[in-house]
Amino acid sequence: MLEAKLSEAALLKRLLDAVKELVSDANFECNEEGIQLQAMDNSHVALVSVKLYASGFKRYRCDRPLPLGVNLGSLTKVLKCAKDDDICTLKAGDDADILSLTYEAKSAYADRIAEYEMKLMDIDADQLGIPDTDYDASVTMPSSEFLRIVRDLSLLGESVRIEVSKEGIRFVSDGEAANGNILIKQNAEASGKKKGSIEMNSAVTLTFSLKYLVNFSKSSSLSKKVQLMMSNDVPLLVSYAFNQGHIRYYLAPKIGD
C-alpha cells in the first residue's frame, strides 16, 4: 500500500498544471524511494519526468513498487477541491484501483477533513531509456526570465533557435511578419549573486517548437530557477528543481533547418 502525506496540496496542484497539457494519462510509479512519473506526449516530441522524493513528504510509506495509473484530468479536478495550504494525503491499496486523497485544513473556527476518491486505470505505456548525456552547454537562469522569453517569442513565430556561444545565450525567432532575438550575456555581477550561469564546452545551436517551451515554463511556479542542458543534435533538457523533487522535460529538436 501507499500512504504519502504532503504538507501542502499546492505542490501537487502545480505539478499537475505543469504536466497535464502534455500528457493525459500516466503511471505514478511509487516505491520506497518516492513517486516518479515519466510520460511522453502523443507526438513523441516531448517527455516529462517528475520525481518526488520520499523524504519530501511529511510521512511516506510504500511497501512494494506500485504503479498508479492516473487520468491527469480527473486528478486535476480532485485537486481543485483542495486549498493550496491543505495537508494532502494520498492513499492506495495494493490492488491500485482507487486513489484516495484527504485534505486537512485547520481554520480559525474548526478543523476540516475532506476525503475524495478517484478511479485508477491500467496504463500500458512504454518507458523510454534516457541515456546519460554529457551536455556541451548548461545554462541556469531565473525561471521567470525563461517564461517571459518563450512567451514573448511565441507571439512572433512558432519556433525558436537557441544559440549558446562565448557571447552568452541567444534566443531567436523568425516569424513571417516579425522577428526577434534576445541575448543573455554572462554577467560577472549577476553570476556573483548566483542569478544565473552559462557553462559551455563548445558552441551549440538548436531549434525548438515554442509551444512546448511555453508549456514547460508552467513549472516556473515550482522553482525560481531553470536549467537548460544542450548539445547539438540531441534533445534539450529543461530542469526545474524544488525541495521535494524535480520536474524535467526533454524536447526533440527540429532538424534540417
Binding site: M40, S43, H44, V45, A46, L47, D126, Q127, L128, G129, I130, P131, S159, T207, S209, V234, P235, Y250, A252, P253, K254, I255, G256, D257
Partner: peptide
C-alpha cells in the same frame, strides 16, 4: 523549413 524530430530517434527502450 525544418522538420520536427522525434524523441524515439534519440531515446531507446531500456
Amino acid at each position: 523549413p525544418s522538420a520536427q524530430g522525434s524523441l524515439k530517434d534519440f531515446f531507446g527502450k531500456p
